[in-house]
Amino acid sequence: MKSRIIYGPILSRRLGRSLGIDIIKKREFRKNCNFDCVYCQLGHVDWKISTPSDVTDPVTTEEVIDGITNYHKKVDDLDYITFSGTCEPTLNLELGNMIEQIRQISDIPICVITNSSLVNRKDVRENLSKADLVVATLVSGNEKTFQAINRPAGGIELQDIIEGLRELQKMKGPKVAIEVMLLDSTNDYPVNSSDEEVGKLIEVLRYIDPDEIEILTTSRPPAEDFIIPVPETRLKEIAQKFDEELGRERVRLVLKGLKRKRSNIKHENLVDEVYDLILRRPCTFEQVVQSLDIGKEELAPILEGLVGEQKIIEILSENGTYYRPT
């Protein structure tokens, strides 16, 4: 089954109803990234792409514009058009041009979700500066913890990321939100929710000075089964500390359980749309229903068929049964 560049919309805790764009073609690998994060909802990376020059078949601007032109008008109430998916979008150096061209055909705000790996590069920062919102990941202020959680490709170092995020913020282009994914573990694996780690994160975030700081924990089954969510009481404690040190007006605690009224989406091929969504974002049955605005009686046989074809699998977690691509 060939996946499309445009997918969704996704109903997000952070961005509302967001139409996704995936700009690294998958070919023989289901997932392409320069990180292999222990908490990734898509599982392990088979092959890490280190730099943009390693991308052998990037999506073109023309492909993105064609996809957006044929898709986004089928959805009535989008909050964002978002570059994300199975790849790190900044690995495609056409990103800035894509954003500029989308603005010619749509007035919907544009977001880029990035793992921050390449923000030390000037060309990458210039591409990101064209967006309305950049959501950039930062999991630790300590190199050892960063390496343990994100497991980056060789040559990617935390201090370069920190300096790159500071420079991006100084450009005063897009709104810059730092996503802090807090984790716990069932063993002694290095995670970032201890008092020491939180203190270092606050120090680094004060230095970067982002517009917004989003605190959350994993809600979908992670790549490593020893990684578990931080309890809500601890999340709130950490959020309170961030409020005190960094200012309540820009700290946002993102909790699970988003609900929103249905949209009005014109469907053409529900099987492809369901698969494209799950390929980029593992979902529960109810999350697929809400995101794509389809009936439960329509969805059940589609999921059953995709499982039977071994395109997706069921993963059990404390938050329910998720469907993940194989």
Rank of each mutant, 00 (worst) to 15 (best):
M1E: 09
R4L: 07
G8V: 01
G8R: 03
P9T: 01
L15Y: 06
L15G: 00
K25L: 02
K25I: 01
S50N: 01
D54S: 12
D57T: 10
T61L: 08
T61Q: 10
K74L: 03
D76C: 02
D79V: 15
Y80R: 06
I81Q: 13
T90C: 03
N97Q: 02
P109M: 08
P109R: 12
I110V: 02
V112W: 04
T114V: 00
D123G: 11
E126C: 04
S129I: 06
V135R: 00
L138H: 00
E143V: 13
F146Y: 09
F146C: 10
F146H: 05
Q147L: 09
R151Y: 12
G155V: 00
I156H: 05
I161R: 12
E167V: 13
M171L: 10
L182F: 08
L183H: 07
L183C: 08
D184I: 14
T186A: 07
E196K: 15
E197Q: 01
V204I: 08
V204G: 05
D209F: 03
P210Q: 00
T218N: 08
S219K: 01
R220Y: 08
P221H: 13
E224I: 13
I227W: 13
P229E: 12
Q240G: 13
E249H: 00
G257I: 03
S263D: 02
N264M: 15
H267G: 10
D272W: 08
E273W: 06
R281F: 07
P282Y: 04
C283D: 14
Q287V: 15
V288Q: 06
S291H: 03
G295M: 07
I302C: 08
V307Q: 11
I315T: 14
E318P: 12
Y322E: 09
Y323A: 11
Y323C: 11
R324S: 13
